[in-house]
Amino acid sequence: MTLSLPALAAAAVLGLLGIGVAGLLVTRNLIKVVVGIQVMTKGGMLAMVLAGYLSGRVQTGAALALTVIVADTIVSVVALAFAVQVRRRFGTLDLQALSTLRR
């Protein structure tokens, strides 16, 4: 397969999604979890633009990617506010230590 721009962009989409999943799996820090979600969403919005490019409807793909950008920003704002408040109340960002349901 030739290394055309769509193929490279598809590789970037898959790579970003995979790296985001790995980031969600390897960490227990709340803020690092938000970083993992951000990386995954970047793959998602790139996928929207790529789909618009491949189907010839660039502007529709761009409009959808704009929605993804807004939703992603709001998700990270709320998650970071959550992390800050958790840190204030419990004094830790460790997801394992926050769990009060075990045992």
């Binding site: 970047k42 618009g52 660039v58 990617a65 950008i69």
Partner: peptide, 18 residues
């Protein structure tokens, strides 16, 4: 990458917001 794929408006918004 978004700019190269032909969506400069979204690229600008992603650059400033993201």
């Amino acid at each position: 990458l978004m700019y190269l794929l032909g969506a400069p408006e979204v690229a600008v918004i992603e650059l400033s917001v993201g």
